[in-house]
Amino acid sequence: MAPLRACIAEVLRASHHLADGNQQQARYFRNRLLIASAFSGLFAVLIAVAQWLLPQVNVITSPADWHGTAWVPLVTVMLFGAVGALFTAIPAIAKIPTDFGPFNLPLQQALLKIVFGPLVAVIGQAVLGSGVLTVAVPTTWPATFLSAVVFGAGQQAVTRYVDQRAGKILDVGTDGASVN
């Protein structure tokens, strides 16, 4: 009886150790996602404030029929970039568990995508407006909105690693493998 009890205790210790390690990985990854989201949001706000404070410097090319301040098209591009990012966040949003827990990685994944989308949209619009690429610069509001949505959705290429890493961490609970 004593050898069986010792064997059971060892199995319980090993499984507890594995579960602790997996929860620690999930916690650290969640914290990194939140920090990345905060920095992305802060950077987006700083770009908008800089455009507002420096109206003579255009971060993006405004549509041809726009004659107002430069920060309005910039904020509009950011908004539509967030909408494009929201499209790619739908799979992560669908995975958000109904029993909210401290290691809710799909929520942080979706948040990062939605906050990162406006930055990618602004960068994409800035690249188009700079003339670096030999493609047409959007000159109307609908073209500007559409390209902002496309660039916002394009953040998926950047956040794909985050999705893969979160998938590995979340799959650990179902298949028992360790995350490395």
Rank of each mutant, 00 (worst) to 15 (best):
S62N: 12
S62M: 06
S62D: 06
A64M: 15
D65E: 08
W66F: 02
H67F: 07
G68S: 15
A70N: 01
V72H: 01
P73L: 01
L74C: 10
V75T: 13
V75C: 12
V77K: 00
M78V: 05
M78A: 13
M78P: 06
L79I: 14
L79C: 14
A85S: 14
A85H: 11
L86N: 11
A89V: 00
P91S: 09
P91T: 05
A94V: 07
K95N: 07
K95T: 03
I96R: 01
I96E: 05
P97R: 15
T98R: 11
T98N: 15
T98Q: 13
D99S: 14
D99W: 07
G101D: 09
P102S: 12
F103L: 04
N104W: 02
Q108Y: 14
Q108N: 09
L111E: 07
L112Q: 10
V115T: 09
V115E: 08
G117V: 12
V120N: 12
V120R: 04
A121P: 14
A121W: 02
G124T: 07
G124L: 09
G124F: 01
A126H: 02
A126M: 09
V127R: 04
V127G: 04
V127I: 13
G129T: 00
G129C: 00
S130G: 03
S130W: 01
L133Q: 11
L133D: 08
T134E: 08
V135P: 10
V137F: 02
T140V: 11
T140P: 11
W141C: 01
W141L: 07
F145W: 08
F145P: 05
F145Q: 06
S147T: 12
S147D: 07
S147G: 08
V149I: 15
F151L: 13
Q155H: 03
Q155D: 10
Q155V: 03
Q156V: 11
Q156M: 06
T159C: 15
R160L: 15
R160P: 13
Y161C: 12
